[in-house]
Design a protein around this nucleic acid. Structure first.
Lengths: 202, 202
DNA sequence: TCGGGATAGTGACAATTGTAATGTTTGGAA
DNA sequence: TTCCAAACATTACAATTGTCACTATCCCGA
């Protein structure tokens, strides 16, 4: 199987390359670090499958996936992202992606996904699917919660947030627990990542 | 003093607006949420000073600052960012910015900076200056350190990182301490933010 | 006037995270 | 060969973070 890897982070490309090299039937024929390059590559080389990051500078993965799918509908596309938020999954499927894996999924799952998609089965990582299954929630944070999310996304500690907003550290912690619950995330680091990813998507 | 606020995050704009409104001589004449809009505004309105975020979708703060400074050299520009990394400061100053404040600086400092810059003194936030003063370091992370930084930036816990890389949680923690030291950051959340900010700047 | 949500608080607890000191091994570079 | 840096490890400690249970106030809308 001829595979094209697309990610703007060379670290991701490299590690994927190493991981996939253990499988004899999977052959990395190309690497691209932007959506534009990926489209270009597919136009010029035979490719069976594209593993595509969503967030990239210039043309992002969704846009590239759409063009590739429109021009070469037989090419299978698997999106590879950090978070499986509703928007990302939804847009990916709309533009014709057949698979959706999280970078945090373990290697075995990622390889299984490639094989399944190759066999014609659309696959969504279970954790992502879990988010996708309860869509309408529209998880809205209250103004205060947004302020705290913002502070976390700027690297402040609970103590600093408390000082800045003139409330107790305890209240800050309680509020964070609520935010984590609403956004289905695990800790403040994931909140910060979520914030900047969202921002990048806008 | 006629001030233009530029930030793609409405939360930042709002809070700045409230904070600055306590000072009678500072007047917010305009708000923009992208570099392009900022340039447009300056062309059409009298402005004494621009408070500009660096990271924005579309035209970023640096590019906008360059255009504004080229066309209206008398307009003072203060860059407002999350982290004072060497690159950001350097590019800001090259492009003609007169000030450099961190969003995490307290309000009094931010206001003082505005007044000082207005009076013709270039001002760099002390924490940012600290980074700027020791530039050549080129803080290079080892391959392993990069892997761990990457994992953190993807929201993994120490335990998960250890499992993924087949090393102990203790080693992961030690390595993180080294990374934090090298990058002059405080905790994993700041590492994650740093990672995504860097990525956005590329 | 009766909820209900947002906001704020406390205290206790558990888990995670970060620091420090110290040691081993290994693969180059001088 | 000798030395160094990177990688990995252990242990112990301290600080931060996240969870839970329970309370209280305020305000708004049915």
């Amino acid at each position: 199987m001829q595979i094209l890897l697309v990610d703007d982070d060379s670290l991701v490309i490299e590690s994927l390359e190493i991981l996939l090299s253990t499988e004899n039937d999977l052959c990395i024929t190309g690497k691209a670090n932007s959506g534009g390059d990926a489209v270009q590559f597919v136009r010029e080389h035979p490719v069976d499958m594209v593993l595509m990051d969503i967030q990239m500078p210039g043309m992002d993965g969704i846009a590239a996936a759409k063009i590739i799918h429109d021009e070469f509908p037989q090419v299978k596309i698997i999106m590879l992202t950090t978070f499986g938020d509703y928007q990302s999954i939804h847009r990916s499927l709309q533009v014709g992606a057949s698979g959706f894996v999280l970078k945090s999924d373990d290697v075995q799952k990622q390889i299984m996904t490639i094989r399944a998609v190759d066999a014609g089965l659309p696959v969504i990582s279970e954790h992502a699917l879990h988010n996708y299954a309860q869509p309408v929630q529209e998880t809205v944070l209250s103004p205060r919660e947004n302020e705290i999310l913002f502070a976390i996304a700027n690297g402040l500690s609970n103590k600093e947030i408390a000082a800045q907003l003139f409330i107790t550290e305890g209240t800050v912690r309680n509020t964070i627990t609520i935010i984590l619950e609403k956004l289905q995330l695990r800790d403040r680091t994931q909140l910060a990542i979520y914030y900047w990813q969202q921002k990048a998507l806008r």
